[in-house]
Write a protein that binds this DNA or RNA. Structure first.
Lengths: 216, 216
DNA sequence: GTCTATATTCAGATAGAC
DNA sequence: GTCTATCTGAATATAGAC
């Protein structure tokens, strides 16, 4: 039962933190949900903060892997959509960490140090994709607009889930929140494309976003 | 000193909540900052929650006034920029309330009830401006894209400040965060305009965003 | 209206038996 | 490794003097 309880605690805590925020979840609540005594919690993690650190580290490790994704030899729009889906999974899985940093306590010094770098590298990833699209003649865009566009797209991704959740807005179609984020970005990005690529892009999104795991 | 202390408490609390969130500010901290004994706080507000309610109500009242703004008889781009500046002031002033709703306790039932309506009406405002722009031949846009565009613009406004704060991103130019939000939106919106209006829009932004109170 | 002193509550954490 | 019992400290709130 050694590893099992340890992992179960992390899993449950992450789930609860995602739902109610770090400060909005008590250790008693975590223990209860896991189905163990609260005292047992302190055997596995010496403090609530240590539990947070474990999750923070997993997040850093996970985003490190995602940040290695870059445009390759294939069709760039195809690769771009795959990248977005990867990013969307990360945002969903670590929702509470991607959440308001003003909720103090939510971020360890470790994460606090890493976050600007994660943002920078994510912007850079978008830049790589956008420049590739430009070089391949798929979009027409000026250098200063490239920078603005990267930032706008990251902003949409970062906050798309929160926006849909808190606004209770229902958009036409029965698309899930992640699908919606991708479509928001598509609206912006496709305005830089000639018509034939817009249609191709649309078709790609339609195909790749139909996976049931994305409509949750 | 009756009204003065009461108002000072609200003012200080709002400032602190904006900085650290509702849960991240203690009543002791508020009293200390105001320069009164903590006991005195409970004379003016029977609970921390009552203090929050007072601020929440002021927010609802304030946004009610802003939501009455609609395109009039003037040049729609001019009116649109004025509207955005009004909205930006509201977002800045009530930052902590516009913040993550997962920070439980931050929202009274009253606000919880009003928020979806505030979102709906804000979307509607954007829709009114966009349709007016379309009708005046300033932008070309399809009906389904109108809906998407409204949502994307509100998303950018709602989260622009948070994004810039938490990403520590520095964009070219010495623009303040609010200026940045407006420019992000302009990037998206101007892609629907013919060239001559893009330039006119740019000129308007340059003129209206130079106010020193917006560069904070 | 404002203060000081005190009560209440509960989340986070420890100790030690099993 | 897991439990029960208990402690600590901080934040919210009350009581009553001035």
């Amino acid at each position: 039962m050694a590893k099992a309880t340890h992992d179960k605690i992390i899993e449950v805590a992450q789930e609860l933190f995602n739902r109610n925020g770090f400060g909005g979840v008590t250790t008693s609540e975590i223990a209860q949900t896991v189905g163990i005594a609260e005292g047992n919690l302190w055997y596995h993690f010496k403090s609530k903060r240590a539990l947070l650190e474990a999750i923070n580290l997993e997040f850093i490790r996970c985003s490190e892997a995602r940040m290695a994704i870059n445009p390759g030899d294939g069709f760039v729009l195809d690769e771009f959509v795959d990248f977005q889906i990867e990013l969307s999974k990360e945002v969903r899985k670590f929702r509470f960490m991607y959440r308001d940093q003003a909720d103090y306590g939510q971020h360890t010094p470790e994460l606090e140090r890493e976050l600007p770098r994660i943002y920078d590298r994510t912007i850079e990833q978008y830049r790589n994709f956008i420049l590739k699209m430009r070089d391949d003649g798929i979009i027409g865009i000026s250098p200063p607009d490239v920078e603005m566009l990267c930032h706008v797209l990251v902003l949409i991704f970062r906050y798309g889930l929160e926006f849909l959740r808190e606004s209770h807005i229902k958009l036409p179609g029965d698309a899930g929140p992640i699908t919606m984020s991708v479509r928001f970005q598509a609206l912006v990005l496709s305005r830089f494309m000639p018509r034939q690529y817009v249609e191709e892009f649309e078709a790609l999104l339609l195909k790749k976003l139909s996976s049931p795991e994305l409509s949750k």
